[in-house]
């Protein structure tokens, strides 16, 4: 029992913090490995929505050109927005588990739990985007921009997801209890649909159209449509699609990190 265990190379605090973040990311990935069905369902759900809107509901009010070219970028943005509730649910569940107490009583970097969460969620969102894009291809969607524009679009989508992620973390830390997640889940739907994901704002009553245009998700969808070269894209929205998520991050990232550090103190 008196053996001393060699710790990893006596690095700086920064090196330890990175190692902790990696350990916590691996924790999330280990969860995936033990619950492959849950991960699969998470990927299939947006695909089902896409097919439902593509075939069942179809149409696309006020859209010029192929609806699928309008719909797929909208679904991509909507999936990123819905990621908020997934993050919030996961963080809330984690906070209500005893293991958080052990983490907090250990000499680990404070934010590593959150970094692990965000790394895993971003990875899952990347997979979700790939699945949606694949199915989009299968039902006839084609991006018309170049590879640079394609990567730019994916980048904007992931940036938007990253902002949603930290809003989700902050909401989870504020709400605390899993019951509160339901309330947010109910709210996420109208906010998600109150966008230009499925229809253009021009087709809506004036006040609604204005609200929809101001929805940060609409900015991302419009910019992505532009980069993919489909209908509903407007060139001027690239900046808005970058600045909105960055602004949200500037507010929610420090809030969440601070709140996590002061947890139950």
């Amino acid at each position: 029992m008196s053996t001393t265990y060699e710790t990893s190379s006596p690095g700086t605090y920064g090196a330890y913090a990175l190692a902790d973040c990696w350990t916590m990311t691996r924790r999330e990935l280990a969860h995936w490995a033990r619950q492959p069905v849950q991960v699969a369902v998470g990927l299939i759900f947006p695909v089902m929505l896409l097919l439902m809107f593509g075939y069942l509901i179809g149409g696309g009010r006020g859209v010029e050109g192929a609806y699928v070219d309008f719909l797929v970028p909208g679904m991509l943005a909507l999936t990123m927005a819905f990621g908020l509730e997934g993050t919030m649910l996961a963080v809330t569940q984690d906070l209500n588990k005893g293991v958080i107490d052990r983490f907090r009583s250990m000499p680990m970097a404070n934010g590593a739990v959150l970094v692990g969460r965000s790394a895993a969620d971003m990875l899952q969102s990347g997979l979700g985007l790939a699945a949606l894009i694949g199915v989009g291809y299968a039902i006839g969607w084609r991006p018309h921009g170049g590879p640079g524009a394609f990567l730019g679009a994916v980048g904007l989508l992931l940036l938007f997801r990253f902002a949603m992620l930290w809003i989700g973390i902050e909401l989870a830390l504020v709400a605390g209890k899993p019951e509160m997640v339901q309330a947010v889940q109910i709210l996420v739907w109208p906010v998600g649909f109150l966008s230009n994901a499925f229809a253009t704002p021009d087709s809506m009553p004036g006040w609604l159209g204005t609200a929809v245009e101001w929805n940060p998700m609409s900015q991302t969808a419009t910019a992505v449509r532009d980069l993919f070269g489909g209908p509903g894209g407007e060139p001027g929205h690239l900046w808005a699609a970058a600045i909105w998520p960055l602004g949200l991050l500037a507010v929610f990232f420090p809030l969440a990190v601070r709140r996590f550090g002061r947890l139950s103190v």
Binding site: A19, T23, Q35, F103
Partner: peptide, 24 residues
């Protein structure tokens, strides 16, 4: 209350805590 990751195995838990204590 048990301060363990319920989804992971016993060994995975102990290894994770060891890594967080910065063991190689």
């Amino acid at each position: 209350h048990a301060a363990l990751d319920e989804e992971l195995g016993g060994r995975q838990n102990l290894e994770m805590f060891g890594r967080l204590h910065h063991l190689r």
